[in-house]
């Protein structure tokens, strides 16, 4: 049942991509920051979850929570140690802040990555799945962990939607992404909005990292590809558009899975890349970009 196989595997991969990319795009939408230490934070979360569960024997759930906590701390560290100083710097002209944030977060990501390789070697690690075993769906032997991953991703994405659209904090965040100055006029401190966004980002990246560690496994080599994939998805969807990245994640996820199954696993990334090029030519602002 190749069609079902593709449908099921593609869904899990896409959902994971979506989770990883959404925090990334949210930060861009609200503060115009492209965080190139994204992959490093995800890997740090997965490796921390692995270390807690397999080395310190804390148990799977505690391990996963520790992983997410590590990502949250990293996220704040990225903001306070790298992004905020650049944004507040008077010596960097405004039009160049973008390239400085890119350079800064990239260097920061490399530092995290090198530390991970130093302490945990660059061999791949896998987080112990919360659920083990397989079930048979329409003749496809599917690991329960894969279903679990997909379900968690969907639930978290739904929660994020509720948070942004139904709560007061969320509405402020949404407003800030549309017009930061307007929000300050309404009496909201922009810094506290940023802190909320980086907190959401940390949790999302941590969760995505831990789930990825359970589903496929990660190593310090994954840092670059993870950042690049989030970057491409977000560009395809339109920078800053959360729903755009959601759609783009599924487009990319399924395109890759189709290629891997029907053509050759070695060419997995190429069609998605071609699509990206085409979109950049025809519609440079991405699928749902505002600009």
């Amino acid at each position: 049942m190749l069609a079902f196989q593709i449908l099921i595997d593609g869904f899990a991969v896409s959902a994971l991509y979506a989770l990883g990319a959404m925090g990334f795009t949210l930060i861009f939408g609200v503060s115009g920051v492209l965080n190139l230490s994204h992959g490093a934070i995800m890997v740090a979360a997965a490796v921390a979850a692995w270390a807690a569960a397999s080395v310190l024997h804390t148990g799977t759930y505690t391990g996963a929570l520790i992983g997410i906590a590590v990502a949250l701390i990293m996220s704040f560290a990225t903001y306070f140690a790298v992004v905020q100083p650049i944004q507040r710097s008077r010596r960097i002209p405004n039009e160049e802040k973008e390239i400085f944030v890119l350079t800064g977060t990239l260097l920061w990501g490399i530092m995290i990555q090198e530390l991970i390789a130093y302490f945990f070697t660059n061999n791949a690690k896998t987080v112990l799945p919360i659920i083990e075993g397989v079930v048979n769906i329409m003749g496809v032997r599917t690991p329960q962990n894969e279903i679990f991953t997909a379900v968690v991703c969907c639930v978290v994405i739904a929660l994020l939607w509720l948070l942004v659209n139904r709560t007061r904090t969320g509405k402020v965040v949404l407003a800030a992404s549309m017009n930061p100055r307007g929000v300050t006029l309404l009496g909201h401190e922009l810094t506290s909005v940023y802190i909320v966004v980086w907190a959401i980002y940390g949790v999302l990246a941590g969760l995505a990292g831990v789930l990825l560690g359970m589903f496929l496994g990660v190593s310090s080599y994954s840092v670059g590809p993870l950042t690049a994939s989030a970057f491409s998805i977000v560009v395809l969807g339109g920078l800053g558009s959360v729903s755009g990245s959601l759609i783009a994640a599924f487009v990319v996820g399924y395109l890759e899975t189709l290629t891997a199954y029907l053509i050759n696993p070695a060419y997995r990334t190429i069609p998605a890349l071609l699509l990206l090029v085409v979109v950049m030519y025809i519609r440079p602002q991405g699928l749902l970009g505002r600009r």
Partner: peptide, 21 residues
Amino acid sequence: GELATFIVSAVALLVVLFFPG
């Protein structure tokens, strides 16, 4: 040894943050 890359990146980050010129 293995920390060389880390140190170079850290120095570069500090320059970017404090001597943006």
